[in-house]
Design a binder for these strands. Structure first.
Lengths: 108, 108
DNA sequence: AGTTTGCGAAACCGAATGGTTGCGCATATA
DNA sequence: TATATGCGCAACCATTCGGTTTCGCAAACT
């Protein structure tokens, strides 16, 4: 059972859930109301998101409020960084810098 | 057959391939040499990456060079943007701004 | 011309995925 | 106390996934 953030955000419903609870905590039923799906299906997604520590939960009576652990999203941001560098290089047409990066990579 | 960039980067081998061909075009065999996998397996990954237009190919004799269509990576960057805003808000403790965003969302 | 090499495509397989249904438990409400 | 509600969990199911093996084709060597 592979469980990393990239696999977590691969599913469109899960991305929607993440966006939904990013701003405020919500219960499974409240989340399910926003999509064309059941609470149980949402519950399974929440479990996956919990397993990769992408969300937090807070019990309140018999209700459980889920919210986003937004810091974990930075992992994706960090991963993207390597490509952002290349965008900049291409944008500025710095072909010599590009070959320097290639060289550094080969030296590793 | 769902085929979007998020599903494409969900697989760790595919992420590695993407990083590998980001700087220079490579053939399937050359790519496979970098991992503990076969050319055929790489070929399947390349097909998936092609289907979501994340890579380009250029035939050269009997060899096919694959390279990254880096612009497509920006989609992930754009998606991340909504969370980056929240990072900044939390960092600056701008709780009033946060509730404004919530309000704007509710008005939509 | 004959052989080797690089490749995609198809068939197949076990494992994982996303969903449903049904259950039991705890908390609320009457 | 009896009933309704919110929830996680397990069982089940069809589909997809990632990989291997095999094949056929085209380009490159000998």
């Amino acid at each position: 059972m592979r469980r990393d953030i990239f696999q977590a955000i691969a599913d469109p419903t899960r991305r929607a859930i993440i966006a939904l609870i990013a701003l405020q905590a919500m219960t499974p039923n409240a989340i399910a109301d926003n999509f064309n799906t059941t609470r149980q299906a949402v519950s399974k997604h929440l479990r996956i998101l919990t397993e990769c520590e992408l969300i937090k939960q807070e019990q309140q009576g018999r209700e459980i409020y889920y919210s986003l652990a937004i810091d974990r999203m930075k992992e994706v941001d960090i991963w993207l960084d390597q490509f952002r560098k290349i965008w900049e290089i291409q944008f500025h047409q710095l072909d010599d810098v590009l070959s320097t990066i290639r060289q550094q990579k080969n030296e590793k």
